[in-house]
């Protein structure tokens, strides 16, 4: 590594900028892609299972997938009808 390279190191190369931009973009596009593909079906199937045991409609079940840097959280929220607890 020459002295010139040492000074150059402070400024990222255009390839490094391209890589960073692509990594952010691809991660974003992949997350929206995967949510679109299986989340609605997952919600439907979960609802079908829940409906076997409780009398609930689609509005009382919410499914949410949240994505952080290193983990994904699947949040499932079911509002049970009051009279159902005695069933």
């Amino acid at each position: 590594m020459s002295l010139l390279d040492y000074f150059r190191a402070s400024k990222p190369t255009s390839a490094a900028i391209a890589k960073e931009r692509l990594q952010i973009l691809v991660a974003h596009e992949r997350s929206s892609r995967s949510q679109l593909s299986y989340l609605p079906k997952l919600k439907q199937e979960l609802l079908a299972v829940i409906q076997k045991y409780f009398n609930v409609d689609e509005k009382s079940v919410s499914v949410n997938l949240e994505q952080d840097d290193d983990r994904e959280t699947l949040e499932l929220n079911i509002v049970l009808p009051d009279d159902e607890l005695t069933k």
């Binding site: 190369t13 255009s14 390839a15 490094a16 391209a18 890589k19 692509l22 990594q23 691809v26």
Partner: peptide, 17 residues
């Protein structure tokens, strides 16, 4: 051009995809 930092490297593309 990869060596000069003007083109994505094969490792960069492998990693991204």
């Amino acid at each position: 051009r990869v060596k000069d930092g003007g083109m994505l490297s094969v490792d960069d593309v492998k990693e991204i995809l």
